[in-house]
């Protein structure tokens, strides 16, 4: 069992990070912490994908003439994750902008309080 966990260490770490991010996203009332949790989930998925592409003893895919293709790692997850990281930043920026707008209206980062205020239909000024 311990050997299997050690063998699959990257996958297990990715699962743990994903769970931490998931629980934070659902349970923490603070909006900024929720966004951080979402980012943790993002990186967990990236870690899983990149670990899938790794080949024991493989090197980064800088191609050379006359080299067997098994000497490199799989380039497909690398391409996926590369674009994924940049897109994750832009979505984070969008969430942060929305959070700022919510704060301007409700003077709170706590989602529960925002929900109460929104439910009571309180219009400021």
């Amino acid at each position: 069992m311990l050997e299997a966990i050690l063998q699959q260490r990257y996958y297990i770490t990715a699962v743990l990070l994903f769970t931490i991010g998931f629980v934070t996203l659902f349970l923490h009332p603070n909006l900024l912490k929720k966004i951080i949790g979402l980012n943790l989930m993002d990186t967990a998925v990236f870690l899983f994908l990149a670990a899938m592409g790794y080949v024991e003893g493989g090197v980064a895919p800088m191609l050379e003439e006359g080299q067997e293709w098994t000497a490199y790692i799989n380039p497909v997850p690398g391409g996926l994750v590369l674009t994924g990281i940049v897109v994750a930043v832009s979505t984070t920026a969008l969430f942060l902008a929305l959070t700022q707008r919510l704060y301007r209206r409700y003077h709170s980062l706590n989602l529960d309080e925002i929900l109460i205020l929104a439910r009571s239909g309180e219009e400021k000024h």
Partner: peptide, 23 residues
């Protein structure tokens, strides 16, 4: 360590730099 140096550069610039700065 996973032999993806392009990911390392991007993560260092984006994760440790831009995202945290936006927060």
């Amino acid at each position: 360590l996973l032999q993806s140096p392009d990911l390392a550069v991007t993560e260092a610039a984006v994760g440790a730099g831009v995202t945290s700065l936006l927060f």
